[in-house]
Design a protein around this nucleic acid. Structure first.
Lengths: 333, 333
DNA sequence: TAATACAAATGGAACGTTCCCAATTTGGAG
DNA sequence: CTCCAAATTGGGAACGTTCCATTTGTATTA
């Protein structure tokens, strides 16, 4: 392969100085229209693209957003990450992804810090964390002044980060309003009870149950939040003879639906996330739709407007979710 | 934040030359055990990590694998990408991800070349493309000597790439064997007819249908391969009064299942990919399981063993898939 | 016309490595 | 003690940018 053209080659071809070429590729101001065109033309002819390394080495940052996806297997996370990428791309900002290998063996989640360290080595100008990372040690030596936003999760150990996520209180209120309107009395909450989101959502349910004067009744899925865990917990919950089950997320709800099918019982079920499969006719799960577009636009705003970030540093921003009513709560069986 | 320590700082603290520090961080040979430990200790105390940019700028490559994910919304792709990442990580090789924003509007897939260009700007030492990219223009100025492997797709315009994917002939043979054993006669194939994988799989079905002396009957989903397209095509296919429907992939099959539920018909259905949701009790889709582990190990082998790559350059490697029998083909309704 | 102001363009230093090479030290074997 | 190879050193030149202090150019004003 031919040696890649450098800024010098472009300068030579355009008959200007290297510095001018650098200016053209950096900012808009201070370069005459005439020269700019000459330079761009030369660059195009040579097929010049700036060397990201040299740039980053010299300037200390290279203007991209690092996106850490907590769990690559969670479609909600990957979908969200891609939405964010598109939104940033529209603003001319590039994103790199890394994921941290949550191995969910024995219910014990573990994080491999290396990929995150690699991402940080690339000196992103800001960091977006999608989902919750149980263990924040990989962020120990994070630069003080690196803007960090975490979405779809509370921020945990990252004191300075901003967290953007759905308002679980609203979500649980909507679910309970819906179920009470349908006349349900005996309702069970099914979900994990580990830290962070699981805890928050569970206590949101408890709050709303109290406000709605619904008898509190819960079944735990331990640390897991999967379909398999939902299946087991669902069978367990059936012993309480409920008429409705409120699940931590769609995956757990799918498992619960399987449990109902297996036991041949008809009970209302609700999920959380409105994942792709919840809309399938045979699943048709009543669920909570997180307003991804709003979350994304908040994220973009926070990470592109320095003042915004400063203002919300260490705070949490709640986005109002919406209830999607489907057959799982209305047409039982 | 404090200035990041450099190789000089480490050298000073360890009381050795900078050259030696560089040697320690690079290769194993030629440094005594004693000195190596001293250097590593000093580096650790200072929290030194090599500056990836300076290194890459000077040496021209930085030893990571670039993974391009054709479609972030395809769980098969993301899952596979993460498997590959883990496999490389186990060998101490790091991966970066990029995706290229396939916008599937009006059935016309479009690729944004910028993210891929950015990834290439980072000079990966090899490239893994997960899935099929309809338009290969972003790879126009790919370095001649960059090893490229493409999985779950034929390699299309990338002449020098190696493609690793499942053997569709075997898959279709297994499906037809299974359906014929069950006594089906009137079988319809439902799937897209666009280029590459869609074409290959379709013609694999046609071949096997001929060999099995099954009357050929197909319904197209146009360019799409989604649940929505499956729903429409499924309803269309019902007019042919089939007893079984073979679908291009799980998503299409899910749509077809919806169509059957809506029309209240009982027809055997098979998918392809064995995605997570196909195992749900209420879906229970008979489908083809791609041997991801084998594919991953082939990929790792190809991209870490230079001879292997050279040997297979421009060729295709087929992995034998397996049939997973579930209710959708055996217990109708 | 000369003085001034400001925009446009320039040249060189610096960023932290790796690569190269010649020079020096160390350690073990003969 | 001598010799040789291995280990270590030191320095300088890249790598391709960005940053900074200057210089050059052009237009405006007195």
């Amino acid at each position: 392969m031919a040696k890649r053209p450098t800024i010098h080659d472009v300068a030579e071809r355009a008959g200007v100085s290297k510095s001018l070429v650098a200016l053209v590729f950096k900012s808009d101001s201070g370069v005459s229209q005439k020269r700019r065109e000459i330079v761009l033309k030369a660059a195009k002819e040579l097929g010049y693209t700036p060397n990201a390394f040299a740039s980053a080495l010299r300037s200390g940052n290279n203007g991209f957003v690092g996106i850490v996806i907590a769990d690559f297997h969670n479609p909600l996370f990957t979908e969200f990450a891609d939405l964010a990428r598109q939104a940033f791309a529209a603003k001319g900002i590039f994103c790199f992804f890394a994921t941290s290998s949550i191995s969910n063996i024995d219910g014990v989640e573990k994080i491999d810090p290396v990929p995150i360290q690699h991402l940080l080595d690339l000196k992103p100008s800001s960091l977006l964390i999608v989902g919750g990372l149980v263990d924040h040690t990989p962020f120990k030596n994070i630069p003080e002044d690196l803007p960090v936003v975490q979405v779809l999760s509370s921020k945990g150990a990252l004191r300075k980060a901003v967290s953007v996520r759905s308002n679980d209180d609203t979500a649980m209120k909507q679910i309970l309003d819906h179920l009470l309107t349908l006349g349900h009395k005996n309702i069970v909450y099914i979900g994990p009870e580990s830290e962070r989101v699981a805890k928050d959502r569970r206590s949101a349910y408890e709050n709303q149950a109290k406000l709605h004067k619904v008898k509190l009744s819960t079944v735990s899925t331990g640390l897991a939040r999967t379909e398999a865990a939902g299946l087991i917990a669902g069978l367990e919950a059936l012993k309480l003879k409920p008429t409705a089950m409120v699940c931590f997320n769609d995956n757990v709800a799918f498992g619960v639906q399987d449990a109902l099918a297996r036991a041949n019982h008809k009970v209302a079920v609700t999920g959380y996330d409105n994942t792709f499969f919840s809309s399938l006719e045979r699943v048709s799960l009543t669920t909570i739709d997180q307003d991804k577009e709003s979350i994304v636009s908040q994220v973009v705003w926070l990470l592109t407007d320095n003042n915004a970030l400063k203002k919300y540093q260490g705070k949490e921003i709640f986005i109002e979710p919406g209830l999607v009513v489907r057959n799982s709560s209305t047409k039982l069986g």
